[in-house]
């Protein structure tokens, strides 16, 4: 985890030409930058984090029954929590 334990204070340290070079290994700084750019921010995962989603419909049905609540079932082609 040592490469990825903190977020860069500045993203201006690297040039794109260095990043796209296939002829040399990425530097540790470049890896950290890509890590922080790619990973979702908290604001982007609010719909997963603020709502307690289940993935097992039968288990969710049992919980709903136990807690006296209705189910909200969200079905998509491609799992909403793991596809895109």
């Amino acid at each position: 985890m040592r490469f990825f334990t903190f977020i860069l204070s500045s993203l201006s340290l690297i040039t794109s030409s260095a990043l796209v070079s296939a002829k040399k290994d990425l530097t540790e700084t470049e890896r950290k930058t890509i890590w922080s750019l790619v990973n979702a921010d908290k604001s982007e995962t609010i719909w997963k984090d603020k709502i307690n989603w289940h993935a097992d419909i039968w288990e969710a049905r049992k919980i709903a029954n136990r807690e006296g609540k209705p189910l909200l079932i969200w079905e998509m082609d491609g799992h909403p929590m793991g596809c895109t």
């Binding site: 609010i46 719909w47 603020k50 709502i51 307690n52 989603w53 289940h54 993935a55 097992d56 419909i57 969710a60 049905r61 919980i63 709903a64 807690e67 609540k69 209705p70 189910l71 909200l72 079932i73 969200w74 079905e75 998509m76 082609d77 491609g78 799992h79 909403p80 929590m81 793991g82 596809c83």
Partner: peptide, 21 residues
């Protein structure tokens, strides 16, 4: 499910489950 107005009322009202159709 990211909409602040939806999040105001939806919390704890349902048991939520998502699936791949």
């Amino acid at each position: 499910f990211s909409n602040p107005e939806v999040l105001k009322w939806i919390d704890n009202k349902f048991i939520f489950v998502a699936g791949d159709d």
